[in-house]
């Protein structure tokens, strides 16, 4: 569904490419995580996948990037809208500002696509229901909490039934309650939809819950691409500046101090860690 071949991108006036020689594929319907330290190029990659690069942010491209069989560089943002959705960090900045109700806000994308009114009504209702916003339909988008606003931002994209959904650290500005709300919604997506999802996230415990695969980016390059349990417990992660879970850290330290001898696989989640330390205790 997403395919990059030797894709590079350099912002105007910069010597170093922001994305360098990236090649990877995301099969349809898969849920991919994206991690890397600050400045690794995660946001740039998200923008490129959504076509904001090169159509909003200019720069020099090489290689190829196709999403849903569309060559991004040859397309336009208007054509991509509805096929590729983008959600980013600040929920407030994603509210159009031109709608006075949550319902109207969700409908905006479909209106821009010229979808007939009956169909808009159906799709909006369904999406509101799915994203847990049905009771807030007549509220002002500005009267919502951060978590609700971010769910609204996601709903406003989902309603267009995109083939691909790109999320750039969607919970980084939310409190734990808001974060849980957003993840509950994403969880639902995994089961119900054939949407292909790529999410940049630094809360590794969350990624562990439901990603099929994780990409690791550092200085614009792809360092690793594999299942979360392998990739996110790799010492490499910590070396490049990604905070591992405390479970992984505790286990690795236990091993380093010789408290635990046999284990080579380090835990990523609470459940893994419990098993890890319980086994070692016997």
């Amino acid at each position: 569904m997403i395919r990059l071949e030797r894709f590079s991108f350099t912002y105007p006036g910069e010597d170093q490419p922001a994305l360098s020689d990236l090649s990877f594929e995301v099969p349809a319907g898969q849920f991919y995580g994206l991690v890397g330290p600050n400045g690794a190029g995660k946001s740039t990659l998200c923008y490129a996948l959504a076509g904001m690069i090169p159509h909003y942010f200019k720069g020099t491209l090489s290689g190829s990037l196709t999403v849903a069989e569309i060559d991004i560089a040859q397309s336009s943002l208007g054509e991509l809208a509805g096929t590729i959705g983008l959600v980013f960090q600040n929920p407030f900045n994603q509210i159009s500002g031109s709608r006075f109700s949550v319902r109207g806000e969700v409908a905006l994308g479909l209106e821009n696509l010229g979808v007939p009114r009956d169909q808009i009504t159906d799709q909006v209702d369904e999406t509101l229901e799915q994203s847990g916003l049905a009771d807030l339909g007549e509220r002002s988008p500005f009267a919502l909490s951060g978590g609700q606003q971010q769910r609204l931002a996601i709903a406003s994209i989902l309603v267009m039934q995109p083939a691909v959904l790109i999320l750039d650290e969607p919970t980084s500005q939310l409190d734990p309650v808001g974060t849980s709300e957003v993840y509950a919604l994403l969880h639902q997506l995994v089961g119900q939809h054939e949407t292909t999802v790529l999410i940049a996230e630094h809360k590794l415990e969350r990624l562990a819950e439901f990603t099929d695969n994780v990409l690791v980016l550092n200085q614009g390059r792809l360092l690793a691409n594999g299942p979360p349990k392998t990739v996110l417990t790799d010492p490499l992660i910590e070396e490049i500046g990604v905070q591992p879970t405390r479970y992984t850290q505790a286990a690795r330290q236990a091993r380093a101090r010789g408290l635990i001898l046999k284990k080579d696989e380090f835990p990523l989640t609470l459940q893994d860690a419990q098993e890890f330390f319980d086994d070692a205790a016997v």
Partner: peptide, 9 residues
């Protein structure tokens, strides 16, 4: 620590 990676933290 909001938005900071391991280095920043």
């Amino acid at each position: 620590t909001m938005g900071l990676d391991l280095h920043g933290t």
